[in-house]
Structures are given as structure tokens and as C-alpha cells.
Nucleic acid binder design. Structure first.
Length: 986
DNA sequence: GAGACTTCCTAA
DNA sequence: TCAGTTAGGAAGTCTC
């Protein structure tokens, strides 16, 4: 048994002791169909031939031993296509090492092995691409779900004492048969007391350059360690280079040499032995930086951060690319036995946000700004004294603690654990892999139970598309009567269940029908003309999986209702969410042509049924609810998308619309196969239908009070328009739909436009952000061009693929394209570059405003964008930079009448001299006002950083206060310069 | 300057 | 080796 494949299971006991279990005896394997005429007596020569071929192919020394351990003849069925009751003879081939699976698969699929008596056969392989750890978890009736409790049978495991290889507190050897997996139910649904370490590093970069690990030292590392489920950390410390003044409640460990700091930190990790390491962007910044820095300084034993003593931690480049999540370059870091939960990545995966900086994410979810120190100041703080380094350490600690607080607040660990349990995959797959693996895991598990095998499909880049859902042509306009919304609940899963759509029920070839003597009652032809077996003959696996998921969700929701304990409630809520997501992703999996097991017959039949259903729903409702049938109005379906219809029944009362909605939903449901269900969900009143996938309205679920203002697809919910537009549209909708004050909305818009043209709008509201989706672009785009320019300024801090790029549009030459006028907001701020307010009016505000006002005001709406407010004389924007402006000589104008003055130094022209005292008073008042404003903002920033006695060093790009403060500072400077001009007059 | 085309982001 | 789907609006650039 020795040196066979060993599965290392890492975990923690209920008491919180870390455990490493070396699980023995489980072998990697896969299947191939047995060649025709293959008998028991062929097994031996098959084994030795394949074994020799693998060993010839493997160059690695460690694979020199026997590769093929066993070959068994088994009777199984492929999941792909209905095969009646016929079982097929398969060979189950067991291997010594997991790595040999891929080699053997390639050899067999290519037909590169000559088998005596059979020749070079090309074999399709089955279940050959599932990773070994998942194979182990799926198999042998163990069926271990991810992140769940496992018991080792008493007396059956051996505790390692002198021969331990890890830093785990308990290390044991056990046979895989002596493992008991517990379903995460009842008592076994509790969450383990995992140790979570959250950390952040600071490095001293040089001015204007992003830190480089080859040059710039690591000066601080802050750590916060918390037991999952507890609300307070039990360790708070900070490792600092040079002395650092004491911080309350924090252990400061000061080092004179950077090598010591790094070595001690690595040791701290090993002793603290966390199950989860978290932080913000640790995977792509902190870890790679530390590893490279330690390598540069040759710190012995640093890169051993995992639980296995002699396994070196390394950073590898990897690229993740999917249609749904986009492309992203990542570093992969192996820290054996510890989960790396990078909060940045969680945010990017789970939440669509305008910006993903720790600051903006914290503001969004925790409602607080963090202290942000511009990297150019860090070195100064480090080179100061104990107190300045303490300042830095406090900042660093906060950055270490925030990720932990985000995890807690959003209950990420619990939700991910529940997702791992529901889908069966190990926790880390949820962070490193896509959606498909979750469906595959469930499919393999169900297939295993039913004796079905999953073929390894080789991707034959079929970029063929299939038809999706119907979007009913909207009857655009503003509706001041209630519009009822009817939705099919879980449409795609219920279609798959209702019509038994599955790989195993798919009849690709009509000959199958005759072969198994099927009658017309036994199968159905979908609207897409694909044939599937009915459930009465054999139920498909996907329908079973979906039923289980939906049944489990119902149970979780029922349990949630009864449960009072907040921890258990969080677990249950996480579970029901995971179950819902899982059910919905099954359809997508079958249509993923780049995927592991695409079957477009399923996905395109699903959408075809869906199209038929939404049409039928529209017809049924419009046919039944007519004046002719005794109703007061003829009902109209004014819009619908995929699984919903918006119905104008006619009545003016919300309650009546709800009654009709409920009735109609029940009526339509009768016309469909179980478990398809049309549900009345809500009423919109009033309802503004702008276009396909674009609408807004007040959302009512009870006739007494509206629940919310709901907006779909329009600027308020989009991340690629600036906040100014979002806020203006949001406010207008509020005024129009809730306050019913269209005139007020118009006045408001005019005000905003006037403010905009007078440069009174804060810069943070003008920032536009777009994702950098790829590395090569055919056309020019603002955010892409800017990212390129920023890369030239400082490669380290420039946006990378997958990042969001923030920019503002600045004034440029008359015909300059937008991509030439995009600039980094911070750069604009630092250099006082004027904003192209006209662009914001004409290219950002105009169209969205017209789209919402047009249906309400009609022709009149065009007056919004013309009139006095637009003609307001623009306040001279700063013109110190850019293009031709630097060649222009600026002449001062009279502060009274604005006529050019001969000399810069004076304040007023001859004609205005008599008014000078008044003018002076006016400017003095103005300056006093600005001073007060600046000081208020300053105090606010000081409060934010938790100290009123030190300079504000923050430069948080996402903080609106920061922009306002910068602007106020600038205005104050200008005002004070103006004041100085009066000095020459006296 | 109209229309094709690309890109982003959202709805479902 | 890895990657869930299609429909669709809107904005901006490119092309003729």
C-alpha cells in the first residue's frame, strides 16, 4: 500500500485543533469501453501493454514504478443518449499516481497503444478528466461533500508522532474505508471553528513608482486572527521595520533588519497555523511581493507557508477567462492545507461594483471610509520616527482588519461553505474554478449512484449559437395605472423537469425508438424538434438533480422560518441561496459549448419551450380578460422578457390589478405541465417602459404601500455611466414616480445642468469607469487608451486586464475624440485640468434624461436642455495645463466688469474703482466661506482617520470628501490669490 | 453623415 | 488546463 496515491485531507476538530489526515488506499482511475471480444483473459496483457506505454511516455523519475495497478471489467452505461436497459462492457483502469491518468487518457484517446490481439484502437474515455481530489470525494459511497464534517473511525487511524511531516496539530494515517462522511444536516450542519488570518503589508516605494520587490523593502505586516463565528480577533499584531510606538490592544513586533521581519512573519504563520488566510488582493500583490522580496533577500525558510513542512510556496502566473466573468490575470500561490480567500476576488466574483478598491468596497458594505495613504507618503512615514511609523501601522492594521470585517458582514465563509456542501466541490474550487465544476460534481455524484458514466468530451470548438429567449416588443410609454407582473418560477429548471430533458433521456437517432420498441407515448418532440424520453419510461438525471435542489431549497427555507438562532439562520439562508444558484446554472452548463459536456439539444429545447410558453401566456391572458368576456377592460400584455409578462388589465386600483394578476397566474398555470408555475409577483404603478430591458416603476406587493422604486437596465443601475447621471436620473424618477412632481424634476434638472456648466459639480460625480475586458482591442476606446497612457507613466499602478478603469473627460481640441480626452481623475485633480462640461451635458446627461422625460412630457421635454440654465456663463475653469493653452498668455480681468486689465497685479479697472470696497468685501466673504468649507472637510477627513491631532495624509480616490477637500483647497488658493490683487490697489 | 461594427454591461 | 447561456440597448469609433 505504501507510496500509492495518497489523499491529504486538511481540517479542524470541533475543538479547533488542526488535522492532517493521510488517506491511503484510494486509487485514481477512469473507464474505457472494452474492445469487441474483450474477455477476462485479455486483462493481463492489456494491463502490461498499457503500463509499458505509460512508463515509456512518462519522463519523470518518480513514475518509474508500476503505473497500471489494476483493470476490472464492469457493466455500465454512458450517460450520453438513451440506451434502453442495455449495459455496456467497460474497463475500469486503476493507476498508481493521479498524474498518470492524464497520460493514459491521451494515449488511449489518440490510439497510440498497440494492444496484442486488438491493434491500435482509439478509445473514448469516461470520467477521465475529474481531478483526483474530487474523484475521491465523489466515490466509494463516501460521497464527501465539500467543507463538511468527516469522522475517522475510532481505533482505525494511526497518530503520527515522530514522523510528522506537517505543522498541523494532529497528523494521522487512515484507510479510506475508515472514513465516515456526515451529511451536513442537523448537528453536522454547524460551521467549524476555523482560524482566519487576515493580513496586509506595506512597502516603501520610491516616489512616483509602484513598489518593486527587487528594490523596495517590506516595512510592515499587520495581522489579525479570528475564529470563524466570533466577532472579535484574538490576535492583533503588526511586524514593523524599525521601532514603532505602542498601539493599544496590539502587539508590535519591531525589527531592525528586514530579513528578520520576513523570517519571523513566516514563522508566525506556521505557528499560528491558520485554516484560512485572507486579505485584500493578497493573491496578486501581498503574497507574490513577499515571496519575491524574501527570495531577493535570501530569507531562509520563508517560502514554506503551508502545512506541509517541506513543500515550498511559489507564485505561478495563471489566466482565468470566461464569458461570464471576463478575462483576468492571476497569480496562483500554493499554500498547502490553507485556504486563500482573497476578499478582492470574492468581491469581483459576487458583486457588481463601480470600483473594487478596498476603500470603495468598505464604504459600500460597511458604510465607512478607510484611511488611505498615498504610496508616495509611505516612505516618508517610515523614515520619520516611532510616531510616524505608528501612524503607518494603524493604517496597515485597519487594512488587515477590513477584509475580515467584510467577510463577516457578507457572511462569505458561511455562504461559500454552504455552496461547497450543496454542490459537493472542495471550498477552494469555488474561488479558483468556474460555474461548470459545480454542475459536474453533482452530475458525477448522481451518475455514480445510477451506474452511469460520463464521457470525456474533447472540445471541438463549436461556436454555433442557438436561439435564446423571447423579449416581447414593448408598448413603450408612461403608464399611470397598475401593471401586473406575472413570472414563471425557476422557468428553465422547471422546463427541464416538466419535459424530462437530460443527457440520459436524449434520443439523438430515431433508430433508438425502433430499437427499444418505444411508442409515441414514451417520448416527446420538443419545439426545437429534439426527441427526449418521457419520465414515465425513465427519469433523467438532470431532472432528478433539479428536483433535489429545489426540494432542498424548500426545506431550507422552511427551516429558516422556524430557526431563531442567528448563526443557524445565516447557514440556512446561505444554503437556500446556494441551492437556487445551483439550480439555475444547470441550464447554462448544457449550453456551454466550450464546456465539459454540452448538449445543445437540451439548452435549445429549453429556450424553445420558454419561447412557446411566454407567447402562450400572452395569448391566454389577452383572450380571457376581455370586455367580451365580461371584464371591464381588454387586457394587454405590454411587455415581457424570457419568463415574465407585464399585463395592463385596465383597472386603476392596485388591489384590483393584484386580484386579476393572481387569478390570471393560476389560470395560465393550468395550461402547462407540472411543475411549471406562473406566479403573480408584483404590480408596477406608475410604470415607465422605456425600451426592451429598460424600465422603471414603483414596485407594489401589497395594495397599501409601495415596496421600492425598481429600475431595470437604465443608468441608475449601470456601472458605466458616471454618478452624476445615475443620481440625476434616480432623483428625477423619485420626483416623477413617487412625489408625482414632474415640474419639480424639471426644475431640478435645470439646476444640475447650470451647476455642471459652472463647474460646481464635484469631480467624483463625473468619474466614469469601465472594465478592461481584454488585452487586444480592434477599435479605440477611452478607458483602453487611458490605461495604456497610465502604463507608460507607471506600469506598476496602471490597470490590468479585468480591472476597472476610472476616467473623466477633459477639455480638448474641438474635434478631439472621447478617447483622447479621457484622463485619470487623480491626475486631473493634481494638475488642475479643466473638465469638458459640455461633454457631460451632451454625451452623458442628455440622452438618458430625454429617454425618461420624453414619454411623460412629449415634445416639451426638449426644453430641458435648452434655456437660460444652459446659457449660464461658464465659470473660467483652470487652464494651467494641456494642449495649446500653455502657449496662451493669461490676462487678468477686472473683478468688477471682467474687462481685460493691462497689468496682472491690479484688481479692478478704472471704471470700477469706486466700487472697489464693495468688491473687496464680496471677495473677502467668499474667501471666508471657502475657508470654513475647507476646514469642515478637513476635520471630517481627520475624524475619518481617527485622530484630530495629526495631518491628514489620506488620498482615497473613491472618497467624495477627498475630492471635495481637494477642490475646496484649490478654490481657497485661487480666492487668496485674488485677494492679493487688492493689495496693489491700496 | 449614415450605417456597420465593437464593446460594455445589463435582463432574465 | 481552464472557461454557465442568449437578447439587447447604448455609446463610441470606423468606414465609406
Amino acid at each position: 500500500m505504501k507510496d500509492m496515491s495518497i489523499v491529504r485531507m486538511y481540517g479542524i476538530t470541533e475543538e479547533g485543533f488542526s488535522v492532517l489526515a493521510h488517506v491511503h488506499g484510494f486509487l485514481p482511475y477512469f473507464y474505457v469501453p472494452a474492445p469487441n471480444g474483450f474477455k477476462e483473459e485479455h486483462v493481463q496483457s492489456f494491463m502490461t501493454t498499457l503500463d509499458a506505454a505509460i512508463r515509456r511516455d512518462s519522463k519523470r523519475q518518480e513514475q518509474a514504478g508500476r503505473a497500471v495497478i489494476d483493470v476490472r471489467i464492469v457493466l455500465k452505461q454512458s450517460i450520453f443518449g438513451y440506451q434502453g436497459p442495455d449495459k455496456t462492457v467497460f474497463l475500469q483502469i486503476f493507476f498508481h499516481y493521479a498524474g498518470q491518468v492524464a497520460v493514459a487518457r491521451r494515449l488511449l484517446e489518440m490510439g497510440s497503444v498497440q494492444f496484442p490481439g486488438f491493434g491500435s484502437i482509439t478509445f473514448p474515455t469516461f470520467e477521465s478528466s475529474v481531478g483526483f481530489p474530487l474523484r475521491f470525494m465523489i466515490d466509494n459511497n463516501i460521497q464527501i461533500p465539500g467543507a463538511s464534517w468527516v469522522e475517522l473511525k475510532a481505533q482505525k487511524y494511526i497518530l503520527r508522532q515522530n514522523n510528522a511531516t506537517s505543522h498541523a496539530q494532529l497528523e494521522v494515517d487512515v484507510d479510506y474505508k475508515d472514513i465516515i462522511a456526515h451529511e451536513p444536516e442537523g448537528d453536522w450542519s454547524k460551521i467549524a471553528p476555523l482560524r482566519v488570518l487576515s493580513f496586509d503589508i506595506e512597502c516603501a516605494g520610491r516616489k512616483g513608482v509602484f513598489p518593486d520587490a527587487k528594490e523596495d523593502p517590506v516595512i510592515q505586516i499587520a495581522n489579525v486572527v479570528t475564529i470563524q463565528g466570533s466577532d472579535k480577533p484574538f490576535i492583533r499584531n503588526v511586524f514593523t521595520l524599525k521601532q514603532c510606538a505602542h498601539i493599544a490592544g496590539t502587539h508590535t513586533l519591531c525589527f531592525e533588519r528586514e530579513t528578520d521581519l520576513l523570517a519571523k512573519w513566516a514563522e508566525f504563520i506556521r505557528i499560528c497555523d491558520p485554516d484560512i488566510i485572507t486579505g485584500y488582493n493578497i493573491q496578486n500583490f501581498d503574497f507574490p511581493y513577499l515571496l519575491e522580496r524574501a527570495a531577493t533577500l535570501k530569507v531562509q525558510r520563508f517560502p514554506f507557508l503551508g502545512r506541509v513542512r517541506d513543500l515550498e510556496t511559489k507564485a505561478k502566473d495563471s489566466r482565468f477567462s470566461s464569458k461570464a466573468l471576463g478575462t483576468r490575470d492571476n497569480k496562483a500561490i500554493n499554500i498547502e492545507g490553507r485556504l486563500q480567500v482573497d476578499v478582492l476576488q470574492i468581491m469581483q466574483r459576487d458583486h457588481k461594483l463601480r470600483s473594487y478598491t478596498l476603500n470603495s468596497v468598505s464604504a459600500h458594505f460597511l458604510g465607512e471610509q478607510k484611511e488611505d495613504v498615498h504610496h508616495s507618503i509611505i516612505a516618508d512615514l517610515q523614515n520619520g520616527n516611532d510616531e510616524t511609523r505608528r501612524r503607518l501601522a494603524i493604517y496597515c492594521l485597519k487594512d488587515a482588519y477590513l477584509p475580515q470585517r467584510l467577510l463577516d458582514k457578507l457572511m462569505c465563509i458561511i455562504n461559500y461553505i454552504e455552496m461547497a456542501r450543496v454542490t459537493g466541490v472542495p471550498f477552494n474550487y469555488l474561488l479558483t474554478r468556474g460555474q461548470q465544476i459545480k454542475v459536474i460534481s453533482q452530475l458525477y455524484r448522481k451518475a455514480k449512484q445510477q451506474g452511469l458514466l460520463i464521457p470525456n468530451m474533447n472540445p471541438e470548438g463549436t461556436d454555433e449559437q442557438y436561439e435564446g429567449a423571447t423579449v416581447i416588443e414593448p408598448e413603450k410609454g408612461y403608464y399611470d395605472i397598475p401593471i401586473a407582473t406575472l413570472d414563471f418560477t425557476s422557468l428553465y429548471p422547471s422546463i427541464m423537469m416538466a419535459h424530462n430533458l437530460c443527457y440520459s433521456t436524449y434520443i439523438a437517432n430515431p433508430s433508438v425508438i425502433t430499437k427499444y420498441g418505444l411508442t409515441e407515448d414514451d417520448y416527446v418532440q420538443t419545439p426545437n424538434n429534439d426527441i427526449f424520453l418521457k419520465a414515465s419510461v425513465q427519469k433523467g438525471m438532470l431532472p432528478i438533480i433539479l428536483e433535489d435542489l429545489i426540494g432542498a431549497r424548500k426545506k431550507a427555507k422552511a427551516d429558516l422560518k422556524k430557526e431563531t438562532d442567528p448563526f443557524k439562520r445565516a447557514v440556512l439562508d446561505g444554503r437556500q441561496l446556494a441551492l437556487k444558484i445551483s439550480a439555475n446554472s444547470v441550464y447554462g452548463f448544457t449550453g456551454a459549448t466550450v464546456g465539459k459536456l454540452p448538449l445543445l439539444a437540451i439548452s435549445s429545447s429549453v429556450t424553445a419551450y420558454g419561447r412557446e410558453m411566454i407567447e402562450k401566456t400572452k395569448e391566454l391572458v389577452e383572450a380571457k380578460y376581455t370586455i367580451e368576456n365580461g371584464y371591464e377592460h381588454d387586457a394587454r400584455v405590454i411587455y415581457g422578457d424570457t419568463d415574465s409578462v407585464m399585463v395592463k388589465f385596465g383597472p386603476k386600483e392596485v388591489a384590483e390589478a393584484m386580484r386579476l394578476g393572481r387569478e390570471a397566474a393560476a389560470y395560465v398555470t393550468q395550461h402547462f405541465v407540472k411543475p411549471i408555475n406562473l406566479d403573480f409577483e408584483k404590480v408596477y404603478w406608475p410604470y415607465l417602459l422605456i425600451n426592451k430591458k429598460r424600465y422603471a416603476g414603483l414596485y407594489w406587493t401589497n395594495p397599501v404601500k409601495h415596496d421600492k422604486l425598481d429600475a431595470k437596465g437604465i443608468e441608475t443601475v449601470r456601472r458605466d455611466s458616471c454618478q452624476l447621471v445615475g443620481n440625476v436620473i434616480e432623483t428625477c424618477l423619485h420626483k416623477i414616480l413617487i412625489d408625482r412632481d414632474t415640474a419639480g424634476a424639471e426644475a431640478y434638472v435645470k439646476n444640475v445642468i447650470a451647476d455642471l456648466l459652472q463647474n460646481k459639480i464635484d469631480l467624483s460625480y463625473l468619474v466614469i469607469s469601465k472594465g478592461l475586458g481584454k488585452t487586444e482591442y480592434t477599435g479605440k476606446q477611452a478607458h483602453v487608451e487611458l490605461a495604456e497612457r497610465m502604463r507608460k507613466r507607471d506600469a506598476g499602478s496602471a490597470p490590468n486586464v479585468g480591472d476597472r478603469v476610472s476616467y473623466v473627460i477633459i477639455k480638448g481640441t474641438k474635434d478631439a475624440a472621447a478617447y483622447e480626452k479621457a484622463e485619470d481623475p487623480l491626475y486631473v485633480l493634481d494638475n488642475n485640468i479643466p473638465i469638458d462640461t459640455k461633454y457631460y451635458l451632451e454625451n452623458q446627461l442628455a440622452n438618458p434624461l430625454m429617454r425618461i422625460f420624453e414619454p411623460i412630457l412629449g415634445e416639451k421635454s426638449s426644453s430641458l436642455l435648452a434655456g437660460d440654465h444652459v446659457r449660464t456663463i461658464s465659470v473660467a475653469a483652470p487652464t494651467s495645463m494641456g494642449g495649446l493653452m500653455k502657449f496662451a498668455v493669461r490676462t487678468a480681468t477686472c473683478l468688477g466688469c471682467k474687462t481685460p486689465l493691462p497689468k496682472d497685479e491690479t484688481a479692478v479697472c478704472i471704471n470700477c474703482r469706486p466700487k472697489m470696497v464693495d468688491l473687496y468685501q464680496k471677495h473677502l466673504n467668499n474667501m471666508t466661506e471657502l475657508e470654513e468649507k475647507y476646514s469642515r472637510l478637513w476635520t471630517q477627513c481627520q475624524r475619518c482617520q481617527g485622530s484630530l491631532h495629526q495631518d491628514v495624509i489620506c488620498s482615497a480616490q473613491d472618497c467624495p470628501i477627498f475630492y471635495m477637500r481637494k477642490k475646496a483647497q484649490k478654490d481657497l488658493n485661487d480666492a487668496s490669490k485674488t485677494m492679493n490683487r487688492f493689495a496693489y490697489e491700496w
